[in-house]
Design a protein around this nucleic acid. Structure first.
Length: 271
DNA sequence: AAGAATTCACGAGTGAGGCA
DNA sequence: TGCCTCACTCGTGAATTCTT
């Protein structure tokens, strides 16, 4: 995946340094700061480094632009800190954490959960026709039990094959039905799965139009990015290119952004 | 329509640490 | 010694989508 780093103007990189906490002074060192960061940027990936575009908690914890995960990342101080903070933020449940399209986990501020849900969530009615059988089986168990460890959930749902289970859990996360609620290390390392509804009932009940959702997601991204290159928003959010385009165009119409070239948008206030 | 780029699925490797 | 368990990267090859 040769990422041809289209050169961004230095002033845009500086804007991103500030907005995405890529400076030593802005470095994130504890869970509360991480939550503030997520609320500020709207959404960000968890442990990805500078090789992937977009804001990242790991990069913010490193506090530098070119953060790169080392090979033995669990022996690395910054990486372990990122790991710990990530787990604590998930446990606290103030912000959303889950997998979107492309099976990448991201954090989402509570404010934007209705928007992401509007784009990829499923209504209760759609569940039967859209979800795979294993996913439906798992969901049924969780609706009764509320929360469960991986092992117990596998047993109770009858989805015992590990890869089938993982697939089904990913599927449920993508449609905003299930989230990891806690990561437990003792006595055994396991995830506790819970219903998205248990933590984000109000957000899931808030309806947002598709257009509005695309616009606000694009706005959150552009505000931090300062400028987006062709395909960038789609790559970061998992939206399709046309959808990302709709969001960006809405920002141009509103005067929030200007279009510099096909697929390239700039924050208006940055000129 | 051809060629390029991206995505997807899959598996291996990475760490820890208690337990069989 | 291998098992369990996660998120991530990287490699591969195939499929899909985008660009020109």
């Amino acid at each position: 995946m040769t990422v041809v780093q289209s050169p961004l103007p230095e002033e845009i990189e500086v804007h991103r340094d500030r907005a995405w906490c890529r400076e030593p002074d802005l470095r994130i060192e504890e869970p509360l700061a991480a939550e503030r960061f997520i609320d500020l940027v709207g959404f960000c990936s968890a442990l990805t480094d500078s090789r992937r575009p977009g804001p990242s908690l790991y990069i913010a914890i490193c506090g530098r632009r070119d953060a790169h995960t080392p090979r033995n990342f669990q022996k690395d101080q910054e990486s372990s800190l990122a790991w710990t903070i990530k787990d604590e933020v998930i446990r606290r449940g103030r912000v959303y954490y889950g997998k979107l399209r492309g099976s990448r986990s991201i954090f989402i501020t509570r404010r934007l959960v209705p928007h992401f849900n509007a784009l990829s969530g499923l209504t209760r009615k759609q569940e039967q026709s859209s979800l795979s059988q294993p996913a439906q089986d798992i969901l049924k168990v969780l609706r009764k039990e509320w929360e469960m460890s991986t092992r117990d959930l596998r047993g109770a749902s009858g989805v015992n094959d590990r890869s089938a289970f993982t697939k089904a859990i990913d599927e449920l996360q993508r449609v905003f039905k299930v989230i990891p609620g806690e990561i437990v290390y003792e006595p055994k390392f396991t995830y506790i799965w819970t219903l998205t509804e248990s933590r984000f009932r109000d957000e899931l009940a808030t309806s947002v139009s598709r257009e509005e959702a695309l616009k606000e997601i694009a706005r959150a991204y552009l505000a931090g990015a300062g400028m987006t290159l062709r395909g960038e928003l789609a790559r970061v959010t998992g939206l399709s290119n046309p959808d990302a385009g709709i969001g960006n165009w809405a920002l141009v119409d509103e005067g929030f952004a200007t279009r510099a070239a096909p697929g390239v948008y700039r924050l208006k206030e940055l000129g």
